[in-house]
Simulated scan of single mutants.
Amino acid sequence: MMNSISDGLVYGHRLTPGKSEAMLTWADVESWQPDQGLLWIHLDASNETALNWLEQHGGLSPLTREALLELGTRPRSVVSESGVLVIFRGVNCSPGADPEDMVAIRMFISEKRIITMRRQRVMAVQDIHESIVSGNGPTTAGEFFVALIDRITERIGEIVGDIEDRVAEVEDTIVSAETAELRPLLAELRRESISLRRYIAPQRDMLARLTHERIAWLTEADRTLLRETAERTARYVEDIDTARERALISQEELNNQLAERMNRAMYTLSIVAAIFLPLGLLTGLLGINVGGIPGTDSPWAFLIVTVFLVVLAIVLVAWFKKLKWL
């Protein structure tokens, strides 16, 4: 049976080895018993029906409910006897959204029941749903847990790789491209790196802690996959730091190029001023409106003065070249 997402139940599955029931209804969820297999429900946190069910029938402590519904939160985990509360951050794959504007995935997981919450669509959760529908999905809580983390981390890796590629492109074109084109691009790359690291770094720490927690429903194979995912996340954090440092170095190189161009322009203007300063002094002296200016009555005076000024300019240029100023 299919349910409508408008009732707050986005996905609902009852999982047993070799079998899964696709898209349970609220009636199926309320009639579920632990001996019937692993129950997974994915709820819309903005839907009133889902919120009422979570409060009245969820069987969760007030603190756990509050954490699942909290608007702004960083990645964290809380292990208790009843289950594990985990809050992840994943890439925002919604059309028109910035990938680094990460979305939250809130989950309470125990050996027999999984509750996940969303406010925006999370592609990693949809991947799990599609794999279950196709008959290739997880059948235990541990498999579900590591599969979801793996898909979240995989998409983060794609974004980190894209940032690294764009930084490399900037480094390759930094000599030939216009400064005005590259500076906004570098600023955007640094902003994306900082935004990603803000959530991925605590997620790395959280995964590292979970690998050492005593969680009964995690098998040794699950723990191995969890450790690998934690190591990948740690590597992505390092890659982000490296990309940000490379972007900063590229920004400094651009600033150096700009400063060099300005210095070169000022140097050229200084040389031109040095050449024309004595010429301007002479022409200024000859242009004063007082008596006694030599050559006033000579028809050759202007030509003589012009030739003298040209020769003086040539001498100044030759002298500057000898001094290696030009």
Rank of each mutant, 00 (worst) to 15 (best):
Ile5Tyr: 15
Ile5His: 15
Val10Ser: 08
Gly18Val: 10
Lys19Tyr: 15
Ala22Phe: 01
Met23Tyr: 02
Met23Leu: 08
Leu24Ser: 05
Ala27Cys: 09
Glu30Cys: 12
Gln33Lys: 14
Gly37Trp: 02
Ile41Lys: 04
His42Gly: 05
Asp44Glu: 11
Ala45Gln: 07
Thr49Cys: 03
His57Asn: 14
Pro62Phe: 11
Arg65Thr: 07
Thr73Pro: 00
Ser77Phe: 10
Val78His: 13
Ile87Phe: 01
Phe88Ile: 04
Gly90Phe: 04
Asn92Trp: 00
Asn92Phe: 04
Asn92Val: 02
Ser94Thr: 00
Gly96Met: 08
Pro99Met: 03
Met102Phe: 02
Ile105Cys: 08
Phe108Trp: 14
Ile115Gly: 06
Met117Ser: 02
Arg118Pro: 11
Arg118Ile: 05
Arg121Gln: 12
Met123Phe: 09
Ala124Arg: 04
Val125Asn: 00
Gln126His: 11
Asp127Val: 07
Ile132Trp: 04
Val133Asp: 08
Ser134Pro: 06
Pro138Cys: 01
Ala141Asn: 07
Phe144Thr: 06
Phe145Val: 09
Val146Gly: 01
Asp150His: 14
Thr153Cys: 14
Arg155Phe: 01
Ile156Ser: 03
Gly157Met: 07
Val160Trp: 10
Gly161Glu: 14
Gly161Leu: 10
Asp162Trp: 12
Asp165His: 15
Arg166Cys: 01
Arg166His: 13
Arg166Gly: 04
Val167Lys: 04
Glu171Ile: 10
Glu171Leu: 10
Thr173Ile: 02
Leu182Ile: 08
Leu185Asp: 01
Leu186Trp: 02
Ala187Gly: 13
Arg190Tyr: 07
Arg197Ala: 02
Arg197Tyr: 00
Arg197Met: 10
Arg198Cys: 06
Pro202Asn: 12
Leu207Val: 09
Thr211Glu: 04
Glu213His: 06
Ala216Asp: 15
Ala221Val: 12
Arg223Ile: 01
Thr229Leu: 06
Glu231Gln: 15
Thr233Asn: 08
Arg235Ser: 15
Val237Asn: 01
Val237Asp: 06
Ile240Arg: 00
Arg244Ala: 09
Glu245Ser: 08
Arg246Met: 12
Arg246Glu: 07
Ala247Met: 12
Ile249Lys: 01
Ser250Arg: 05
Gln251Asn: 13
Leu254Gly: 08
Ser270Gly: 14
Ile271Pro: 07
Val272Met: 13
Leu279Pro: 05
Gly280Cys: 14
Leu281Ser: 15
Leu281Phe: 15
Leu282Gln: 11
Thr283Trp: 09
Thr283Glu: 10
Gly287Thr: 07
Gly287His: 03
Gly287Ser: 09
Ile288Ala: 11
Gly292Asp: 00
Pro294Phe: 09
Thr296Lys: 11
Thr296Asp: 02
Pro299Asp: 11
Leu303Val: 12
Ile304Gln: 14
Val305Asp: 06
Leu309Ala: 04
Val310Ala: 14
Val311Cys: 08
Leu316Trp: 06
Val317Tyr: 00
Ala318Gln: 12
Trp319Thr: 00
Lys321Ala: 10
Leu323Tyr: 08
Lys324Trp: 05
Leu326Trp: 08
